[in-house]
Computed example of a mutant assay.
Amino acid sequence: MHCEIPASFTPMTAFDAIETILPHRGTMLLLDSVSACDETTLRAHASVDGSAWYADAAGAMPVWIGIELMAQAIAAHVALLAQRAGAAVRPGVLLGSRRYHAHQPAFACGSALVIEVSELLRSEAGHGAYECAISSAGVCGAQAVVKVFQPDDFHAFIGRSIR
């Protein structure tokens, strides 16, 4: 897998604030913005906050937080596609990744991160898979293929999952 997702972005429109795209709030909203999106790809941005809950002693973001950055970028992609189609945005869940390739131990304090996701699979049943990469200053920090699920009835799905 290459770190860079093919740059074939044709933006749909200008993008609203990230809070209008994602349901995450407070300290769990890790993305800052979306800069490009098309039918199968999205590019998002995040900055490493040295005072955030995840920050280590040097103010860095542990690279394993990248899986959540990827998941939020995927959620933004799914939400923007739904909005464009005039449909309601449905919540989904991160199923996981078979391999998460971390190329460094952490993202340095103050780093500007670019998160790129490219859809590999989308099923009628709500299953999806995305090739994802995180880079900073052109250097690849992490890569993964992330699997997600968007159930028809999220609350029923979650209720079954926590019993």
Rank of each mutant, 00 (worst) to 15 (best):
A142Q: 02
R122K: 10
G126C: 08
V146E: 10
A46S: 12
Q72S: 11
A71W: 12
A106V: 08
L120E: 14
P62E: 04
L80T: 06
C140F: 01
A87E: 15
P62T: 02
E116Y: 00
H2T: 15
D38G: 05
A85N: 09
G141V: 04
T40F: 03
T10S: 07
E4V: 11
V148H: 09
M1N: 11
A133F: 10
S161T: 13
C3V: 07
G66Y: 01
M1S: 15
R99S: 11
H103E: 13
G96Q: 05
V117T: 08
A60P: 01
L30I: 12
A133P: 13
A75S: 15
A14S: 14
L29Q: 15
C3I: 10
Y130K: 02
A57G: 00
S135Y: 05
E19C: 01
A73H: 05
G50W: 01
I21C: 03
M28D: 07
V146W: 03
V145N: 10
V117E: 08
I5N: 08
L81W: 01
A73K: 06
G141D: 06
P23D: 13
W53C: 10
Q72P: 12
C140M: 04
D152P: 01
F154I: 11
A88E: 10
Q150R: 12
S123G: 10
A79C: 03
L95T: 11
G86P: 03
I18H: 01
D49R: 09
E131G: 09
L30T: 10
A142R: 00
T27G: 07
L94I: 14
A36D: 14
Q72M: 13
H2I: 15
A46Y: 02
L69A: 09
M28E: 09
A85I: 08
H101Y: 04
G66I: 03
S111W: 02
A60M: 00
R122Q: 10
G141T: 02
Q150G: 05
E119L: 04
V148K: 12
T20Y: 05
L31H: 03
S8C: 01
G26M: 06
D153S: 11
A57H: 00
F107W: 07
A36K: 08
T41L: 09
P62M: 00
H77Q: 11
L120V: 10
E4M: 10
A79R: 03
F149E: 13
M12I: 15
A108F: 00
H155T: 12
Q72A: 12
R25N: 06
D16N: 08
E68C: 08
G110Q: 09
A52P: 09
S135E: 14
H101W: 00
Y54K: 03
A106E: 13
L95C: 11
L113I: 04
A76T: 10
W64I: 06
V148R: 11
S123E: 14
F154V: 11
V145K: 09
S111K: 00
Q72D: 14
G138Q: 08
I67T: 14
A142P: 03
G66C: 05
A17L: 04
G141H: 07
L95K: 07
R99G: 04
L113C: 04
S35T: 15
A144P: 07
D16W: 01
I158A: 15
L69Q: 06
D153E: 12
G96T: 05
E4D: 15
Q150I: 11
